[in-house]
């Protein structure tokens, strides 16, 4: 906090002279005291939002890991229900964000919570895909982010709409949705590879079709979207390439090799592919 590195020897003296000249009750100082408060309030809110967003990210990531296990267990429904519970907890956290943003301009603090929201979109759309084999829409995501609060601001059951209660909504912005969906494709690629490993022959083909649709969608948006979208488009192409290659292998080799050996063929092929990643 030494403000006068270049000041040299007489800086201390100059400081005392300077402070002596300053009247603590001057209008400038009084004004800056007000500014101090305003800035601190703003920064505090920002910090709180960053913290909630981190929690949302972590919990969403864990949900995604959990969902990856569907390929290896017989009862997928059980895992999906467990994911539901986890996602409910994440939604409660997003409710806290909505609380903080009450009466604020959501774009003022958008940077603070956008990573968490994108991760949540990724998790929730991943679960939706596993269950319904389709893309969750933005409305469906937003419809679940409605929170009931009483005036005392403690969470209550949605059915309990007592007078004095109010509805709190959180809107995922289209760009956050888009970026979350772009991340989803990476997860789908992983799901595809691991399902082949388990001898599941249908899923890869469904996935490649779905990924192609998403890829077409992103190409349609092109560079009208935010800057990050064009960056993610590159990764999306790689994921799509891997899935398409996987389907190709399945089709070509599947007719020749007995099914139980397919997994081995496949895994050796993917390892061969990996070094090329940077070149593509």
């Amino acid at each position: 906090m030494n403000k006068r590195e270049g000041g040299g020897c007489c800086s201390k003296q100059a400081d005392s002279i300077r402070d002596a000249n300053v009247n603590p009750s001057s209008p400038i100082i009084a004004a800056f005291k007000v500014f101090q408060q305003e800035l601190d309030t703003k920064h505090d809110k920002h910090e709180r939002l960053v913290k909630i967003s981190r929690d949302v990210t972590i919990e969403s990531k864990r949900t995604i890991f959990l969902l990856h296990r569907v390929t290896s267990v017989p009862d997928a429904e059980e895992i999906l229900n467990e994911a539901d519970v986890k996602l409910d907890a994440v939604r409660q956290k997003i409710g806290l964000i909505a609380d903080e943003l009450r009466g604020e301009d959501i774009y003022q603090f958008h940077k603070a919570f956008t990573p968490g929201i994108q991760e949540y979109v990724e998790a929730v759309s991943f679960q939706h895909f596993i269950r319904h084999r389709s893309l969750i829409s933005l409305e469906e995501i937003n419809a679940r982010l409605v929170f009931m609060r009483t005036e005392k601001a403690d969470p209550e059951a949605p059915a309990d709409a007592t007078p004095g209660a109010y509805v709190l909504t959180f809107h995922v912005t289209p760009s956050d949705y888009l970026l979350g969906v772009a991340d989803l494709t990476g997860e789908l690629m992983r799901l595809c590879i691991s399902s082949v490993g388990n001898g599941d022959i249908d899923t890869p083909f469904q996935l490649s079709q779905f990924l192609r649709q998403i890829h077409d969608g992103f190409s349609f948006i092109g560079n009208t979207g935010p800057y990050e979208v064009s960056k993610k488009l590159h990764t999306l192409r790689q994921s799509l390439g891997k899935v398409e290659d996987a389907c190709y292998t399945l089709r070509v080799r599947g007719s020749e090799i007995p099914k139980h050996m397919l997994a081995d063929v496949f895994s050796s092929r993917t390892t061969m592919m990996d070094p090329e990643e940077g070149v593509v």
């Binding site: 389709s134 893309l135 829409s137 933005l138 409305e139 289209p174 760009s175 949705y177 888009l178 779905f210 649709q213 998403i214 077409d216 969608g217 992103f218 349609f220 948006i221 009208t224 979207g225």
Partner: peptide, 19 residues
């Protein structure tokens, strides 16, 4: 809502934003 519909909805939003 199909994937295509969803993306054209988002695209509409983005081009309005650009305007």
């Amino acid at each position: 809502m199909s994937v295509t519909e969803m993306f054209s909805y988002i695209q509409g939003f983005l081009s309005a934003d650009q305007d």
